[in-house]
Design a protein around this nucleic acid. Structure first.
Lengths: 205, 205, 205, 205
DNA sequence: TATGAATGAGAATTCATTCAT
DNA sequence: CATGAATGAATTCTCATTCAT
């Protein structure tokens, strides 16, 4: 029994946390960080303004939490998909597809992710170490795929770090077109486009 | 004499405008639109707060002016380079190189450009028509190169619009790595990387 | 107990509202709308600037609230007095007297009322519909008295609307002399003067 | 020759002054004191902003000058009309009529006059001695008429000062209805109404 | 004299954050 | 724990006034 772990209190706590995070994600996605207000988030979460501060230190903190949570889920999903892919080519396609599918289901989150992670590599100026880590984890995933592919001779040799970054941003770019324009189509077409572009380039042979 | 054109007054006016725009570019680049204040910009420009409003209607207007000016200069430079390139391959390389060179010389501007244009394709939500046009002009340039290349059989057939967007964002991504990390190296290496990636993809054959 | 109605919270809310309105009335009376500042009002009310905005949407809104409240109270008092007056002559005198008495007790309010309602009949230009209504209610009261008086042959026939307006403004004028000069005398003398002037004119027979 | 008086310089000076005063009157009438800007006035007068300050100390000063000028002209016209009226009754009617006619021709001015003079007797708070005098001069004119009328037995005895004020404000009230509603009718009707009201009161007998 | 660019004090309003209940 | 009233720092923008040319 002791293993059960979650008391009623814990459940409530987690519930509130989730509720607030969901509201935050929605409002931040809608209005952007600056134009979102704690009032709006609290209202949407169905709690009082002060309550938000019981769960999160500050507006910024809440924002980061919303971002982190989503990124972790994304990472888990992508990593899982990667495991099932046998070849390097399949892994690359899975990486792309997993991201498209995840964000298709979490469009609010994409807006935050997109905004914030574009600012990410701003180097020193940005000073957001928590983020860096989240990003690194993603990048590492892709870099491993690339490194393996090169080793196996299935990929042309290149700078793994640099190329991973390119692919990563390429996917983000294609996602932006797919998500931000509220394209209701299946993501299969852009997934193929991106993969084809990455794999074959645009030159004829 | 009558041809002189610029009176002393005009010179001063232009000088002030430039001064303020430079300051704006710097502060906006440093802090982002929301965290930049007119006070800071005025101080950096060496004028009083009110003076800024003599030259620009509002904070937003100032921001857009800084952006527009840079984009127009960029566009002119890129277009010029494109003209001198004989083949489709050369044109694509020129497109990439021109952007790298321009932004290497205008790093402050890149930060603004990068931030704002990433938010661009947000569709209806964005409602910034002045921008759309600036972007379109750039995109068209690249699309023309692609369309010609396909016609000449030098490029694999693809969706011109979609591919142009991918390349465009790919360059932005590589630029971000180069510029935002304050990489002092010559941009030649990333230029080649990007071109190679675009042209050949990453797959072996 | 359930009947109590006002919780502690309601009381506090009403108290704050009153406090702010009183302060507003005072400052607006002293300085006029434009030269009054929210800072001054907040300070006088003993609250922070932001608190004012918790109770009123804007400076203008606060001003109108102060005005409206006073006008409604005035109207109620005048209407009550009118009911107790038996004859047309008595009603007219009551109308005049009630206004003098009310404003003698609410001198701050008179200054606002005086300023704002003099601008009232500016026709279309004014565009303050909330006001128009408040004014109309007052005017109607007087018009009814006049119309009845004419019907009963106690008043000389005349344009009821026009005459009501004249009397209304006449009272305001006399009030201005009485209130704005801080005349400490009983208002009985000006009340009689005004009534006599209105009733008999100045010509000898 | 020395009597000629006005050099070319003087003429220009007077011309500019008039031009600015006219513009000021118009803008102040349109927007009110606070919302009128020196820029607007200068533009309408066809001079540069700084020039206004060559002729008038401050915005307030300009406003007062516009007011003073109009009041003096009004006063002169009214005084002239009074001279031609033989009886007390005629003088009173002339006083009313002259004001209606003057303001019918100077509607812009009425708006300023109306606004400012309603605030006038605000006692100490107002501290505008220049005005007091302008007002007194007008009042004296009317008081003299009343005093004479009482002496001749054509008017019922009353407080001359108080009654003059009442009549004065009554006229203003009727004027407001006539002018501010842009009534295009001849002012004869309201002139008669006012006179009748003043002379006979509203009571029968 | 005339100009109009520059100034900067000032004011309304917002909203993250705190804390007494 | 939860609440939401209160706070007040911060920010944009305006415009009367000055002064170098």
């Amino acid at each position: 029994m002791a293993v059960a772990g979650k008391s009623k209190k814990d459940v409530l706590l987690e519930f509130r946390t989730t509720e607030i995070l969901d509201a935050a994600r929605h409002v931040f996605a809608e209005k952007g960080f600056n134009d979102a207000t704690i009032d709006q988030i609290a209202a949407l979460a169905g709690v009082a303004k002060g309550t938000v501060y019981l769960y999160f230190e500050s507006k910024r903190d809440l924002f980061l939490a919303a971002l982190r949570e989503g990124v972790l889920a994304l990472h888990a999903e992508v990593a899982a998909q990667l495991l099932t892919a046998p070849t390097c080519e399949a892994k690359l396609r899975a990486f792309i597809a997993a991201r498209f599918h995840y964000f298709s289901r979490n469009r609010d989150f994409f807006r935050i992710y997109y905004t914030e992670f574009s600012h990410l590599p701003t180097g020193a100026a940005n000073a957001r170490p928590e983020f860096k880590d989240l990003y690194e984890e993603q990048a590492t995933l892709l870099e491993t795929v690339l490194a393996d592919g090169i080793q196996l001779g299935q990929l042309r040799p290149c700078s793994v770090a640099r190329t991973a970054r390119l692919i990563y941003d390429l996917i983000r770019s294609a996602l932006a077109q797919h998500i931000l324009t509220d394209d209701p189509e299946s993501p299969d077409l852009p997934i193929n486009s991106v993969f084809d572009f990455v794999w074959n380039g645009i030159g004829t042979k």
